[in-house]
Design a protein around this nucleic acid. Structure first.
Length: 210
DNA sequence: AACTGCCACAACCGCAAACTA
DNA sequence: TTAGTTTGCGGTTGTGGCAGT
């Protein structure tokens, strides 16, 4: 089986096959499509590169902020984060985080793992506030997990329909979720402890969970 | 021009969850 | 219920391009 970068011919074979038949079982796809690749490699190539509904290129400022906020809530759960960024893949977001955003936060004196200002002289700037944020973040995480799950299920349903029809041209629906981030943006301005446009906005929320 | 180091990104690997017979 | 198979996810690596020396 072949490994390494995909050639234009391989891409075309995969694209042609999926457009005609849908992907069906990834395991059996390579032989049917005439590819010397494993099913896993084909799936990855399709989901991360060939899919027609992928937006490529530079991340906008808004997308960057979304990634930072979602990462603060969800951690390295790239697929859950990607569910909130239409047309971006988890792999792309993960790469962007690892190569750019993580370094940028570090330069700003923010720990990219915790999204808190780095501890100076053994003290955090505002421990009470930090505890509050953690509490809020737990709730947000639970909500976002549920939303991501819904998104996955919805995607799965559309995929099944897709494969049943044998054509791969349907656009995935956006996650059927409440826009937590919109609410968050509206409320965070008043209570974030580092909230200038050029810095990280803290994952606080004043949502009413009742 | 040749070399080196760094960066960005595509692709691979291993594991766990989900599915199926 | 369970064992085998398939799929999805996250971490990591390999590679090509670019800038600096």
């Amino acid at each position: 089986l072949k490994k390494g970068p995909w050639t234009r011919e391989e891409d075309q074979k995969l694209l042609d096959y999926i457009q005609k038949h849908g992907h069906g079982s990834w395991r059996s796809l390579p032989s049917k499509a005439g590819l010397q690749r494993c099913g896993k490699s084909c799936r990855l190539r399709w989901t991360n590169y060939l899919r027609p509904d992928i937006k490529r290129g530079k991340f906008s400022t808004h997308e960057e902020k979304m990634i930072i906020r979602l990462h603060a809530l969800l951690g390295n759960r790239w697929s859950a984060i990607a569910a909130h960024l239409p047309k971006r893949t988890d792999n792309e977001i993960k790469n962007y985080w690892n190569t750019r955003l993580k370094k940028r936060l570090t330069r700003m004196g923010i720990d990219p793992a915790t999204h808190k200002p780095k501890i100076v002289n053994g003290h955090q700037s505002n421990p009470k506030h930090a505890a509050n944020i953690n509490h809020m973040a737990q709730w947000e995480t639970a909500r976002l997990e549920a939303e991501a799950r819904l998104a996955r299920e919805s995607k799965l349903r559309s995929c099944r329909l897709l494969n049943h029809n044998g054509i791969a041209h349907a656009q995935p629906q956006p996650p059927p979720c409440l826009d937590v981030l919109r609410v968050w943006r509206a409320t965070s301005a008043s209570n974030c402890f580092f909230n200038s446009p050029t810095t990280l906005e803290s994952p606080t929320s004043t949502l009413n969970f009742s």
